[in-house]
């Protein structure tokens, strides 16, 4: 209850263990075992292990990890679609784990919506009725909810498809319906569980652009799940990487690429073009004795690639500054090296 301003979602020590004697596993030393050993010993699956993080209002927070790392389970625990085994969750200051069924419904109806990997559309309803479903279960009268649904359909670019049925739409359009349905009740938080994994690459790119646009226009807090690193980098302000149910590293794209916490993360980010993610801060060095210090000054957070024009124009090394203080210098050779993917 403490931090209702400044935190949209707050998760502390969340556990989800599937299986018969889940709560007994939790207190015991078994909980520390790795998943395969735990399964062999107790038959339980620890899908989420001691996860903590918080999401700021209006942030796009990405959770990523390989298949089976517990991402879906985590996101479903947030609104208790799956009952967590232990831990605290608060959304906009409300303690989710302690909420009564009615409060929980209220939360799902008005404040948190979800978009699913396999869309979860209702095949027996027209598109407009799919979008209006959330309002319908709230008891909004038909005319009002249809009006709202049509507005949202326009927002996601599905004008003129209101009367169609889900099975007449392409995959990309179906997921737009899924998005529209989640947006219809105007929630504060959107949870997106691999919303674009089932789409082909071109459509996926369109949809990602769409999410970026929507985020700009409606400014929702988003928790976005993906196993695609490029997607994570494109959308996420902060990224949490999960392995075997636990978060192994949480930070900005730059932090993950620049300083991976372990082999797993390093492996994950190996193919990322560093010059497009890292800023000058990561490659600047203290000036050598004979170097000129009259080159152009750039802020330390400048992405390396964006420093290329300045480096081309000036013979002198670029000065990297932060708060009017000189952090170091970067010359053409440093920039070329990082563009070529060398370094560290």
């Amino acid at each position: 209850m403490a931090s209702s301003d400044g935190v949209a979602i707050e998760v502390r020590g969340l556990w989800k263990i599937f299986g018969h004697r889940a709560d007994r596993v939790l207190g015991s030393p078994d909980a520390a075992l790795d998943p395969a050993a735990l399964r062999a010993r107790t038959g339980c699956v620890a899908a989420v292990r001691d996860v903590s993080f918080s999401v700021r209002p209006g942030e796009v927070f990405v959770v990523m990890g390989l298949s089976g790392s517990g991402k879906s389970t985590l996101v479903r625990c947030l609104t208790r679609l799956i009952e967590p085994t232990a831990g605290e969750i608060s959304i906009a200051g409300e303690d989710v784990c302690a909420a009564s069924p009615a409060r929980l419904r209220d939360l799902r109806r008005h404040r948190v919506s979800m978009v699913f990997q396999h869309f979860g559309l209702l095949p027996h309803r027209k598109v407009v009725d799919n979008v209006a479903y959330g309002l319908e279960v709230q008891g909004v009268p038909r005319a009002r909810r249809h009006e709202r649904a049509r507005e949202i359909l326009t927002l996601v670019g599905l004008d003129g498809h209101a009367e169609a049925r889900p099975d007449q739409l392409s995959g990309g359009m179906r997921q737009r319906v899924g998005l529209a349905r989640a947006l219809a009740a105007d929630p504060d938080v959107l949870l997106l569980d691999e919303p674009f994994s089932a789409l082909d690459p071109l459509i996926r790119r369109d949809m990602q652009a769409e999410v970026v646009r929507l985020h700009r226009e409606v400014g929702k807090t988003m928790l976005f799940i993906t196993h695609d690193l490029a997607e994570a980098l494109k959308l996420g302000e902060r990224i949490a990487i999960m392995r075997a149910g636990a978060i192994v590293q949480l930070g900005t794209a730059e932090e993950l690429v620049g300083a991976p916490a372990d082999e797993y993360v390093a492996d994950f980010v190996r193919d990322v073009p560093r010059s497009e993610v890292l800023s000058l801060r990561w490659i600047c060095r203290s000036p050598g004795g004979d170097e000129r210090l009259d080159g152009p000054a750039l802020p330390a957070r400048t992405i390396i690639r964006d420093a290329v024009p300045a480096a081309l124009e000036s013979d002198a090394p670029i000065r990297v500054v932060e708060d009017d203080e000189l952090l170091g210098v970067v010359d053409r050779r440093d920039i070329l090296a990082s563009l070529a993917g060398a370094g560290s």
Binding site: L81, R105, R109, M114, L122, V137
Partner: peptide
């Protein structure tokens, strides 16, 4: 997934039954 989507939008069990499970 349809049932889950319905629950995630705050439908009661009865609403999910009537509007999703029975029609489908």
């Amino acid at each position: 997934s349809a049932v889950e989507a319905s629950t995630s939008l705050g439908a009661t069990r009865w609403q999910t039954l009537r509007k999703v499970q029975l029609p489908m």
